[in-house]
Design a protein around this nucleic acid. Structure first.
Lengths: 206, 206
DNA sequence: TAGATTGTTAATCGATTAACAATC
DNA sequence: TAGATTGTTAATCGATTAACAATC
C-alpha cells in the first residue's frame, strides 16, 4: 500500500505547479530544487522531499525537466483533466465568481449557477441561466458533479453544504465566512479575503 | 521582552474571531474552548494554548465571555480600528474586488483604485475613480497607506509590488497567481481560488 | 461543596532541515 | 573526470496534544 501522503505536502504541489508554469512562460526548460526554492521562499530540501513522495522526477547533476515535472504533478493532483463545478449563490460574490475567467482557463468549468431568490431565477449571470435551488440536488446527481463553490450568505451556507454533500459533492470551495461541518471524506477549502488581511494587521506598527 | 508569537498562532486568531462573531449573532454570550473547538474542528487544547499567548481571557469553570474575548482579539490583531487600503488593477478581478461589500463591512476601506490602461483611467469602478499608476507612489506616501491589494496580471505583479513597497506599503493581499518577493518586514498573503480547487482534486476518486 | 473549565507544563507527534552517498 | 544536484536518511526543530493543578 502506498504510504499516506501528508495533506500539507499535497497543499504545496499546486504552488510548485504554478511556479513551473511561470518558468515555462519565461522560456525556461529545466530547473532545480534550489531555483524553485529561491523563487518560492521554501528550502530546496523541502521541495525535493515533497516531490520524492511521488517518485524520482529529476536527474542528479542536472535537475528537473520542467515540462515533465509539470505533467507528473498535474497527474498526481488530477488536474490534467477538466472538472465541472456548480456555483451556488448569485449575489455580488457569486456574480464576481461567475465572471472570473481564471477558473475555466485552468480546467474548472462552472456549468450551472443556483440561487433561491425568485427575482434572480431565470435571469442570466454572465453566460449562465440562474437555476432555482430546488433543482440543485437533481442537477448535481445527474451530472455527477464532485466540486461546488458556495457563495451564499453565512447563515445559509451550512444548509447548502448539506444539500450538496447529500447529492454527492466531495469538494467544496466555500466563500461564505463560516466554518462548515461536513462528513469524513468531503473536503472543504475556504476563501475569505478579510481573514487574510486580518492576518497581516497584527504585524503593522502604529 | 514579550516572547515571539508563532505566525501560525496569529493566523488562527482571525478564525476564532470570526467564529465568535457568529456565536454573537446566534445570541450566545459565553463559550468554552471545547465548544469553539468543536465548531472549528480544532482541539480545545490548541485554542486555550493559542489564547494564553496573549493573557488569560477566560475563567476556570465558566469559559470565555464572548464580547470580552472578541474585543481582546480585535485589539491583538489591530482590527479594532479602520484601515485604508488601495487596490491596484481594475480589470475583471479588480472590478469584482471593488464591488465586494465585505471589506468595508469589516473595517477595510478601499480608498483608491489604480490601473495603467489609458482607456480605464478616469472612468468609474463601482464608486471609485480609476487613477493612473503613475500616481500610485505619491498617493500611498501622502495618505500613509500600509495595505494594498494587487489584482493585475501575473507578469506585472512583481513590479507593482516593488512600487508599493518603495512607497511604504507593509502588507499586500496578492490576487495575481504568482509568488512575490518582498523585503523583510513586508507581509504578503495570497488568494488564488484555483489553487484551492487543485488542493482538493487529489482526493477525488475517478 | 461538587462540577466544570481554564492556563500551563510535559510528552508526543510530525514536519523541516542538514548532510551526504549516489549518479548524471 | 570534476562539478552539480538529486533522493533519502538521520537529526533537529517546532507544533500539537494530553494531563492536571488551580480556581471559578
Amino acid at each position: 500500500m502506498p504510504t499516506e501522503i501528508p495533506d500539507i505536502v499535497i497543499s504545496r504541489l499546486p504552488v510548485y505547479l504554478r511556479a513551473l508554469e511561470r518558468l515555462t512562460q519565461e522560456g525556461q526548460e529545466v530547473t532545480s530544487s534550489h531555483e524553485l526554492g529561491r523563487r518560492l521562499g521554501i528550502s530546496s530540501a523541502q521541495i525535493r522531499k515533497d516531490l520524492s513522495h511521488f517518485g524520482g522526477f529529476g536527474k542528479q547533476g542536472t535537475g528537473y525537466k520542467i515540462a515533465f515535472l509539470k505533467e507528473q504533478l498535474r497527474q498526481v493532483l488530477k488536474v490534467e483533466r477538466e472538472w465541472n463545478v456548480v456555483l451556488v449563490g448569485a449575489g455580488d460574490l457569486g456574480s464576481a465568481i461567475a465572471h472570473y475567467r481564471g477558473f475555466s482557463d485552468r480546467g474548472f468549468h462552472i456549468i450551472s449557477v443556483f440561487d433561491n431568490s425568485a427575482e434572480k431565477i431565470g435571469r442570466k449571470l454572465s453566460t449562465y441561466d440562474i437555476e432555482p435551488m430546488s433543482q440543485l440536488d437533481e442537477f448535481v446527481t445527474e451530472h455527477d458533479i464532485r466540486i461546488a463553490m458556495i457563495a451564499v450568505p453565512a447563515e445559509h451556507a451550512q444548509q447548502v453544504a448539506d444539500t450538496l454533500v447529500k447529492a454527492g459533492v466531495k469538494a467544496i470551495l466555500n466563500y461564505a465566512p463560516i466554518n462548515l461541518s461536513v462528513p469524513e471524506g468531503v473536503h472543504v477549502q475556504y476563501i475569505d479575503p478579510v481573514l487574510h488581511l486580518q492576518r497581516m494587521t497584527y504585524y503593522l506598527s502604529e
